[in-house]
Design a protein around this nucleic acid. Structure first.
Lengths: 339, 339
DNA sequence: GATGTTTTCGAATACGTTTTCGTAGTTTCA
DNA sequence: TGAAACTACGAAAACGTATTCGAAAACATC
């Protein structure tokens, strides 16, 4: 490995001068700067991030917490898009990313310890159990943090506007004439709660009320659970004419159940999903769904995190709301109550 | 940040002793080991990976090269599963992973330079353009490397058995009675070539030959291109009775085209996909496809990489072939030529 | 030519850790 | 009892870099 010393020897200057020349200090003559940079590239010099970090205590490395015992954010399309955009935005700003976990080899370590071990300048947290002790420890530490789709006090967060999403989807169904709307919601989280708020808000605005049995528990990304939930809805004496699903993937479970019963979408029943992943437009029929702007969510969270890192004292915590967009496929048909 | 020195002061021993006590050297008495470990955990000590690396030149960090200008392996389900398993296996062995890119901030750097900058002990490469200069530079460097789904000389690789996959799928169709099999293949890569080999092998064994116009160019994960390819196949005067698609996602494009023409799967036409991602079992009808064992591919590549890292001299390059599995859905029906 | 100012550089130190080698003290053994 | 062997520890150097501060040299000013 070629180091600053090698360059200094070849150039006949001190290591200090080499370092300064490479880092653009202004007390080095143009001439030596040129000489040093020249030989640096001749020798194929690459700086050593670890040594640099040791001196500056800046790692240019941000941790990402996308996985814990309960969930894996890597294989969920929505989160994989967020991850992708986090990665890209970080790179643009000169940061690498490191996955933060609770184990490294035989050593068990907390999320916080892992961050400290790798000297992460900050962490973006998504797709984990935000109630866990380990996450709270990290949140309350000195490490700058941005959370995605979950809000803490004193910590910045980037939130997909779930109230808006559910509100718009519900309004869409209502405007298409549907009055009997079934809602299959995911496990109890803040995201789920927000969506329920949006759902109820739209109903209220239209003066529509639905029987409690139209709201059934499902689970995100779980086709089988949602298939059963769908069955429960369709077994009702007076089943809904439209169903809102927890997300696009779990809708596929519901679709299987509908198909099994000989029901066609959208002729016999209208449906919509949530997430607006690539897949949804490819289905037959194309799914009406809510597109969450994963790309912007990733970008904003990294932007805010780096702002916090680089201006730690002056940077206030902030909640950033990211809007989504209705993707209208053809899984919803107009409904006339008299039919 | 609490360091070894803090512990040494509190314990009244030298930093050297603390280091040894923590790392299990055998020239430290049981008693001081207990004392040191005790106060270490009291002070909430976390070792510093950068400092450790500087001394040992082992980073316990492996690079992953999943993205380049042409493709993003993060948002492809197959690769995201590989990434997930790479990450898990690495963690089990005490390694973190870092994404390797060609840019960091304003600085352009080659893949190799990025690895050196972050002191990666090794790299696993997948889902990139293996023909690029930058990848070759990395392959030919001193950094231990394992490639996924691409084989170089002198470098270990883990390969999904694409000959097997295409062979088994084709044989399945043939055994179901199909003789007119259309094949939509992806862009020209070694993976595609292997699959064509398997395809032809199965045909030959059954003594079946197909007209050249049954083989059409598509593209992986591109629903629109594959939709067009499907249209070309179905526009033939004597269209195939079964179509093999590049992958499960791009099949959705084909399905759209088939639906548009009023053709039902599998009643009017049989289809199969490739990859066997979660999705495929959820479709209506469930897709017959080939499941690539992404989980094992990820694990094996990390295992082999770490073996190479830790026994660099004695570890020979190796090609590891990973078998897949036929997932039989209901997208293929028996075909009788006389119908 | 003395004084002040600017330019350009280098010595030295520190970051947190690992590891070699020496040594003082203790035990073993003939 | 003396030599040999072992135990437990510490001093010191090193990894590659950034940065402070002082100083020499060059230049400017009067």
């Amino acid at each position: 490995m070629v180091t600053i010393k090698d360059i200094s020897k070849k150039c006949g200057v001190s290591p200090a001068t080499v370092s300064k020349a490479l880092n653009g200090y202004d007390d080095i003559s143009e001439e030596t700067i040129r000489l040093v940079r020249q030989t640096a590239s001749e020798l194929n010099y690459t700086p050593n991030a670890a040594a640099r970090l040791l001196k500056t205590s800046i790692s240019h490395n941000i941790g990402v917490l996308f996985v814990d015992d309960t969930m894996s954010g890597l294989t969920h399309e929505y989160f994989s898009y967020i991850l992708n955009s986090v990665k890209e935005e970080a790179e643009i700003s000169g940061y690498d990313i490191t996955f933060i976990s609770q184990k490294l080899g035989k050593r068990k370590m907390s999320f916080l310890q892992h961050c400290l071990y790798r000297n992460c300048d900050g962490v973006v947290i998504a797709s984990v159990n935000f109630d866990s002790k380990a996450v709270h420890e990290l949140i309350n530490s000195d490490v700058p943090v941005v959370t995605i789709d979950y809000a803490f006090d004193n910590v910045s967060s980037v939130l997909s506007d779930n109230v808006e999403g559910a509100y718009e989807l519900t309004s869409y169904l209502l405007n298409m004439g549907h009055r009997k709307i079934g809602y299959i919601f995911g496990e109890q989280t803040s995201v789920t709660n927000k969506r329920l708020v949006g759902f109820n808000k739209a109903l209220k605005e239209h003066g529509v009320s639905i029987p409690p049995e139209y709201m059934v528990q499902g689970r995100y990304h779980d086709a089988e659970v949602v298939r059963e939930a769908t069955a429960r809805l369709m077994d009702l004496p007076d089943p809904p004419t439209a169903i809102m699903f927890p997300d696009d993937i779990s809708f596929l479970g519901g679709q299987a159940e509908l198909t099994r019963r000989g029901l066609r979408v959208p002729e016999d029943i209208s449906v919509c999903g949530y997430d607006g992943i690539n897949l949804s437009g490819l289905l037959q029929p194309p799914l009406t769904t809510w597109h969450q702007d994963a790309d912007r969510i990733g970008k904003e969270s990294v932007r805010k995190l780096i702002e916090t890192i680089e201006h730690r004292s002056t940077c206030a915590a902030e909640q950033i709301m990211v809007s989504g967009q209705l993707v209208s496929g053809s899984s919803v048909r107009e409904w006339d109550e008299k039919m």
